[in-house]
Design a protein around this nucleic acid. Structure first.
Lengths: 245, 245
DNA sequence: ACAAAAGTGTTACACTTACACCCATGG
DNA sequence: CCATGGGTGTAAGTGTAACACTTTTGT
């Protein structure tokens, strides 16, 4: 740390959130349409300035709540990394700390007419170039996807995309959407249920769907995030994502 | 990002560097002795304020160069994560972006009398509580160690601790020091040399040491960091660290 | 000759993969 | 009864763990 006789440079600091969810078997990301310059009318990650007396995670949660209208966010929030401050915003040097939210599909509330409207967009549409993002947000999204993919291998956080209770098939759909691969349902079932400290049977079953009813599971206590201490539980051996050729 | 009619809060931003190396088979970290308040006389991570027009990595490299007297840093530098800004510095809200340097053992030059003197300290001495760190630097160090441990599993970055050319035994010593475990020399040898895209034989051998001479290796081209693009090469399957019971 | 460290072979076991097969429900 | 998806069994293949053994140097 510093010897700071000349007063140190100060920077505006923003938090941006890459909120991911799985809808209809497809990975989606939460984006807002910007109402002001720069990049007015363009899509961007939700986020905003960190306020005095706030911590980063706190600010990320607040911004996300403001822009979705959802008070208590479901899912798992973690820091992704920091970008800048040089040359990423036409208004000047702004540092941003990107965050990653892995969440079950939750409905976004309509904002008032003067607020930025958040909505889910398929990740594929950004990657294909069909939709473009403001600032360096495409890069941040890429990094977030890479992080999400490896998180699923080594941690129980795939379940963060599901609700409290879920079937193995729902969990598998998460892995398939995030990794962009197909997985053998039978082997996945064995691996997921057989990994100690990952899943716990609820005793309840699904009903009404086609086919045989499925058992409902929840995260095992060891894998659940506790207050303050986000889960450091690890899947060992990892759930392996198929090799990219 | 923001709608910012009220001018956004600005924060001082520092970079801190957890520089790790292996000396005598033991993991060491580079620390400075603080010459000014707060925490005057205490040990801390090297670092300092980000200047206008600087990027984070750039600032981290500059600070480290200033505090070690070493112009061109060897090894691998990456971002670790950001901490704060709330309540981590008695002078006020300061955001810090921590970085991780994995480097071969390099000599630290003596600083002038008014500069902060950097030196290597065994990580064990901090973990045991024998040495204490200023600010939240103990936490940052913990996070850095965790990151370093997993980097060694999935990336070829163990070699960042070695020089250009190294023997398998030297590389193994890195893994043992970082993971704090013993590894079977024979299985490690097979795994390291057998992993495609990791190591490349130089054709040269050691001489003068006890025992049979060892072949010298370097990182394979695929695993070497190229300008701008830090290596994303991956060991698949990973080099596995022994399970913690 | 002996110690020390490098490097190879071999066997047992763990885990993954692929796929045959049975189970339980809705239509 | 059949389609649909849930779930179990099993055998081949791949990789790890443990360790006996050979090779090549310094003393």
């Amino acid at each position: 740390m510093p010897e700071s006789h000349p007063a140190p440079q100060r920077f505006p600091v923003t938090v941006d959130v890459v909120a991911l969810t799985v809808r209809n078997g497809e990975l989606n990301v939460l984006l807002i349409t910007r109402l002001i310059e720069p990049y007015r009318g363009k899509l961007a990650l939700p986020g905003g300035f960190v306020l005095a007396g706030e911590d980063l995670q706190e600010a990320a949660g607040r911004e996300l709540a403001e822009e979705t209208g959802v008070e208590h966010l479901p899912g798992h929030l973690e820091q992704l990394g920091s970008y800048g401050p040089k040359g990423r915003d036409p208004r000047g040097d702004i540092l941003t700390v990107a965050h990653l939210l892995l969440a079950p599909d939750f409905p976004v509330l309509a904002a008032g007419s003067d607020a930025e409207q958040a909505a889910w967009y398929p990740v594929r549409d950004i990657q294909s170039g069909e939709l473009q993002l403001a600032f360096d947000h495409a890069q941040i999204l890429e990094d977030a996807l890479e992080r999400a993919k490896s998180k699923l291998e080594y941690s129980p956080l795939g379940a963060a995309f599901c609700g409290e209770e879920f079937t193995i098939a729902q969990l598998r759909a998460v892995y398939e959407a995030v990794w962009g691969t197909r997985l053998d349902p039978r082997n996945f079932h064995r691996k997921a249920t057989g990994t100690p400290g990952f899943l716990e049977e609820t005793g309840r079953m699904t009903a009404g769907d086609a086919g045989r009813p499925a058992a409902l599971f929840r995260l095992a206590p060891a894998a659940r995030p506790t207050a303050g201490q986000p889960t450091r539980a690890v899947l060992n051996p990892p759930l392996m994502r198929p090799r990219e050729s």
